[in-house]
Nucleic acid binder design. Structure first.
Lengths: 217, 217
DNA sequence: ATCGTGTGTTCCACAGTTCAGAACATATGT
DNA sequence: ACATATGTTCTGAACTGTGGAACACACGAT
């Protein structure tokens, strides 16, 4: 009987080591305790991950997540096909509205910005591709959870960030929400009631993105 | 003779698979070609990585980097000790200047924002922690490369982003630049000559951060 | 519809790697 | 000086990962 959960026991253990140090750096002894692996095994696996840059040692010699994960994480975000497919429609939305436009996908209990175009205005809201945001704040999060008004879009004003308004629409594959497209900007420009002005644009953008990504509606 | 480079051959191979798909999604056959592993091995390793979320399948069944890497990458960025140590000084800088403040470290040929506090102004520049930016654009990048004026700070106006000005100072450990602290905001508020107003503040912040992080000056 | 080829998936005997207790090295506190 | 804790390395045995083969499925040509 194999003792693996994924089919490759060493990968299971290596991920266990990464997960152990995800929230705080750990000295070897703490790593042994947290993972349940023997001291020699913990040391060998952690050293191998360090060799590849997935772990590093902090100033006190504790193991912590390494810089290679930053670049892999960034590459992972670029690899969403919907982000690529959304490019033209996102550019149209940004140009038509003059405001920053973003595309979000859901990742467990959070949302990730997988594509982001900034408004040409000197002052604008900026969400970097790769940013991780909550689902329960902001129109993009509520669009992802399906909490959408009868007109097909969601509005938030000063909800996730003071001074910022946003309007979002969900993107469906069949009946499943797979992404959300948003415009956002300063309340001063979008007003406290941005729905009528921007709602139709984000709904159209959502439809265009679904088409471009080949999603069934 | 072992055929490993890190001490754990399976980890070497698993990283090889991740590296193979870093830049573009690969079908199994392409993965076999790119890695040189046998078909069965490639499939087994990729499936195990997929199980743990480090890979996923795109709509065409190709292997591509998975969402777990996004969250690990984000956690990796939070794990810089200087980011933690910089918290109070960064807050002081933001409060004293009223502008967004960021801390950058160098990662190869790029810079990573490892801590970020936003201005209370309704309109402000925002750099998400985790954002990856170039070294050759913006005052933060030039501070990291040591390209600093005689007053100890760097200024950029409309260089990395139109409408944005920033001022940065390097943070040294001994004679080595290990980080850079920046303030940034709209040119309209920072003016086209933000150095005299903000330069001394970032230089003080850099010194405070170096002290807080226990760096030798 | 049939056939050949290509691609993805699974099996399983065995070759080779990983494991972990022991030993060693170093650090720390008393 | 000593005891203890922590980090690192060694190495024989046990176990896992390997990869050729087989199978399943998709696709293009005829």
């Amino acid at each position: 009987m194999e003792h693996t959960i994924s089919g490759v026991g060493v990968i299971d253990k290596a991920i266990g080591v990464l997960a152990a140090v995800e929230h705080e750096p750990l000295a070897l002894t703490a790593l042994v305790e947290r993972t349940g692996f023997s001291r020699a095994t913990s040391h060998r696996l952690a050293s191998a991950l360090e060799f590849h840059g997935l772990l590093r040692r902090d100033a006190e010699g504790r193991f912590t997540l390494g810089t290679r994960l930053v670049s892999l994480g960034e590459a992972a975000e670029r690899a969403w096909p919907i982000a690529e497919a959304a490019g033209p429609a996102l550019a149209d939305l940004r140009d038509a509205t003059g405001e920053s436009a973003q595309l979000y996908v859901r990742d467990g209990g959070r949302r990730i910005c997988v594509a982001s175009l900034e408004s040409p205005h000197g002052l604008r809201t900026i969400v970097a591709a790769g940013a991780v945001l909550p689902l329960d704040q902001g129109s993009g999060g509520r669009a992802l959870t399906g909490d959408v008004g009868p007109d097909g879009y969601v509005v938030s004003v000063g909800e996730r960030e003071a001074g910022v308004a946003s309007v979002s629409a969900p993107i469906h594959s069949g009946t499943t929400v797979v992404a959300a497209v948003s415009v956002s900007g300063p309340i001063e420009r979008l007003t406290r009631d941005p729905g009528p002005t921007f709602g139709p644009s984000v709904v159209i953008a959502a439809s265009d993105i679904a088409d471009a990504a080949g999603l069934k509606g």
